[in-house]
Amino acid sequence: MTTTSTARVALVTGGSGGIGTAVSRRLAAAGMSVVVHYAGRAEQAEGVVKEISAAGGSALALPGDVAEPEQMSELFDTVEQRFGGIDVVVNTAGIMLLAPVAEMSLEDFDRMHRVNVRGTFVVSQLAARRLRSGGALINFSTSVTRIRQPTYAAYAATKGAVEAMTLILARELRGRDVTVNAVAPGPTATPLFLDGKSGQLIEQLAKAAPLERIGTPDDIAESVAFLAGPGGRWVNGQVLYANGGIA
Score class of each variant (00 low, 15 high):
A206L: 05
P191C: 01
V115R: 00
S16R: 01
T6C: 02
A127D: 12
G135F: 15
V90Q: 07
G237P: 13
S143K: 05
R114T: 10
Q149Y: 06
S198K: 06
L131K: 04
L167P: 10
G135Q: 13
P69G: 03
G17H: 10
T2E: 05
G134H: 09
V89S: 00
Q125F: 03
L131M: 11
D108L: 04
A242I: 05
A55S: 12
L11H: 02
R41M: 09
T190L: 05
T13N: 02
T4M: 00
V117T: 14
I52L: 04
L227D: 13
G245H: 09
I202L: 15
V180G: 08
I202D: 06
T13L: 00
A208W: 10
G17T: 08
L173H: 11
S53Q: 13
A225S: 13
V12E: 03
W234T: 13
T78H: 03
N91E: 03
P63G: 15
D195H: 04
N139F: 03
P217L: 10
A208C: 04
E107L: 06
Q204F: 07
G175K: 15
T92F: 07
A189H: 09
G64D: 07
E212M: 07
T145E: 08
A189T: 07
F76V: 12
P191D: 10
S133E: 14
I246E: 06
F109Q: 00
E43C: 05
